[in-house]
Simulated assay, not measured.
Amino acid sequence: MSAAKRLVVCGGNGFLGSRICKNAVQRGWDVTSISRSGAPKWDAVTSSATPPPWSHKVAWERGDILRPATYAPLLKGADFVVHSMGILLEADYKGVLRGQESPISGLRKAFTSAPQPGNPLQRGVSVKEGGPDVDIRPPETREQLTYENMNRDSAIMLAKEADGENASAFVYVSAAGGAPVLPARYISTKREAESTISSEFPRMRSIFVRPPFLYDSSRPITMPMAAMTGVGALFNGVTGGIFGNLMGAVGVKPLRVDVVAEAIVQALSDEAVKGPVEVPQIEELANKAWRSTMP
């Protein structure tokens, strides 16, 4: 009998990440989640505050995605690594935590000119040389979460550490597109992460899952938003997609969060899957995962 696969999910306590962990546990994998807070606040990601039975089979570890030395030891022996983190809005993270800055302020910042340093590989960031306190954010953006350091740089450095530990596959949860209310840098930094990871770490099978808007009844706020996105997708289809670039993710039909989680675990299991995975292939992978559970 072959040994169980070992999966590490950075962002495993989130809306999508927790379901990736669930699906991997159901396959008998050894699963570790890494996040700043450890285990999820269950009523924030499911319909109950009580931890589900499967959650007791996950190692809920603490680590800072912006400080690679805090999570690097947890990658040892990992077969698969997943990056399931990112931000929609830029903001002074300390100000948000203290209630001193609103999302509106974060949106305003995102559309203003700000320092956009190169990725950490270009800047020569070295975890080993920098010691445990090295932060991948450059000094000019140290006090602010940006698309560059969260959507791009954290993924690149996680991929670098995963490759160094000889992980066989790496999943980066990217996005189907941006949206009219978000600046172009939201999606461009995700595409930059994809490009850098695929070119810099060719030994590792890299998978770039590009989900649309995700919803689930356990998070009621997502239901009407999914309905609106569905209308946008229908309009995009009726018009032949001529407004696709303008609408971005708003023009792509939404998916249940469990569908994407199932697809990600199936993609890791299938050695033929690599590179960008768009919405149609996400659905195909989820269906394949569902069929594999049938008697």
Rank of each mutant, 00 (worst) to 15 (best):
L88I: 12
Y93K: 13
V58C: 05
P53W: 00
G106K: 08
V127C: 00
L89A: 03
W54A: 11
A72D: 08
D79H: 12
E129N: 05
G86F: 04
E129K: 08
L75Y: 02
Y93G: 10
A91T: 11
W60Y: 03
S126P: 06
I136A: 00
F111P: 02
P52G: 07
G118N: 09
L107K: 11
G95A: 13
P51T: 13
Y71P: 02
P103G: 10
G99D: 15
P51R: 13
A78P: 03
A110W: 08
G86E: 03
T112I: 06
R123Y: 01
A78Y: 09
P73H: 08
R62G: 10
T70G: 01
V81L: 06
S47H: 15
Q100A: 11
G99Y: 13
S55T: 09
G77W: 05
P120C: 07
R62C: 15
R62F: 10
G63N: 10
S48A: 12
R62P: 07
S48H: 04
V81K: 07
P51L: 13
P73E: 06
G130Q: 00
L66V: 07
S84T: 06
A78T: 07
R108L: 13
R98N: 14
W54Q: 11
E90M: 10
G95R: 14
S48L: 12
S113W: 10
L89H: 07
G130D: 01
I104L: 12
G124P: 02
Q116M: 06
H56V: 14
H83Y: 14
V58G: 08
Q116R: 15
V127T: 05
G99L: 14
H83F: 13
R108P: 00
G124V: 01
G99K: 14
G63R: 08
K109C: 08
A72N: 04
Q122W: 00
P73F: 02
V81A: 09
G131P: 03
Y93C: 10
E101C: 14
V58N: 07
S102T: 15
R123F: 01
G118F: 04
D79E: 06
V125H: 01
L89E: 07
F80D: 14
K76N: 11
D79W: 09
T112Y: 03
G118Q: 08
T70S: 14
L121S: 05
S105H: 08
V134R: 11
L88Q: 12
G77V: 09
T70P: 02
K57M: 09
G63T: 09
Y71H: 00
G130T: 01
A49L: 13
K94V: 09
I136R: 04
P51E: 11
G106P: 13
P68V: 05
A72K: 02
P117T: 01
